[in-house]
Design a protein around this nucleic acid. Sequence first.
DNA 1: CCGATCGTTTGATACTCGTCAAACAATATG
DNA 2: CATATTGTTTGACGAGTATCAAACGATCGG
Lengths: 106, 106
Amino acid sequence: MADELLPQPDTADIELVKVLHALGDPVRLRLLAIYADGAEHTCDPRGLGLEQLHKSTVSHHMRVLREAGITSTRSAGRNRFVRLRCDDLDARFPGLLDALLRSLER
Amino acid sequence: MADELLPQPDTADIELVKVLHALGDPVRLRLLAIYADGAEHTCDPRGLGLEQLHKSTVSHHMRVLREAGITSTRSAGRNRFVRLRCDDLDARFPGLLDALLRSLER
DNA sequence: CCGATCGTTTGATACTCGTCAAACAATATG
DNA sequence: CATATTGTTTGACGAGTATCAAACGATCGG
């Protein structure tokens, strides 16, 4: 099957409380740090520094991030490529993502 | 008894994940909006626009905010005065609080 | 076609959390 | 002192959640 974008909220529908709730979890905040490079990443726990977590657990966290509007997921063959919705988040909540990423470095 | 500051984490001990978790709730996010003026506020649900919530519920949310390092609470007589820890938060996570407050206005 | 790979879904379990109600403590007021 | 006010604490209950394990689906490679 060809590449396909998984369902995600429109930029205008991203809700701050859902974004904060999604990021108020240590695993998902760690995923944010990983995605901070703006590149696409697969879902494999190995390669994400999440070897201690079951793949289904990681899958669950990725769904939460996507449904909150934080990430975008593209399906391609066996793989799914996840990336931060930097532009969308910055359009909806200017400066918030930058402040979060800077805060992560502490 | 004289004024007394309730226990709260040191500025250096404020954790991002706890801040985000605390704010990932609609009631507490609403409290943040109320506290955004930087002034002191009492805990009475009336006067906070939270008439629909039991006073013990509001008390619970205030404890979460304080323990996360977001607010500071001063006890004076029968009243407790709660305010945002603007300076502490900005010292720990520069720009984050401003970005959050701007995001709230949407 | 067969087996391996990547990721999701479902079910089960334990834990956390938001809420209310009742009891309580401390303080102010008549 | 008696009563009202302000807010906390505790217990109970239902809802949500983080995790793993097992089964499943889709895809790629031989």
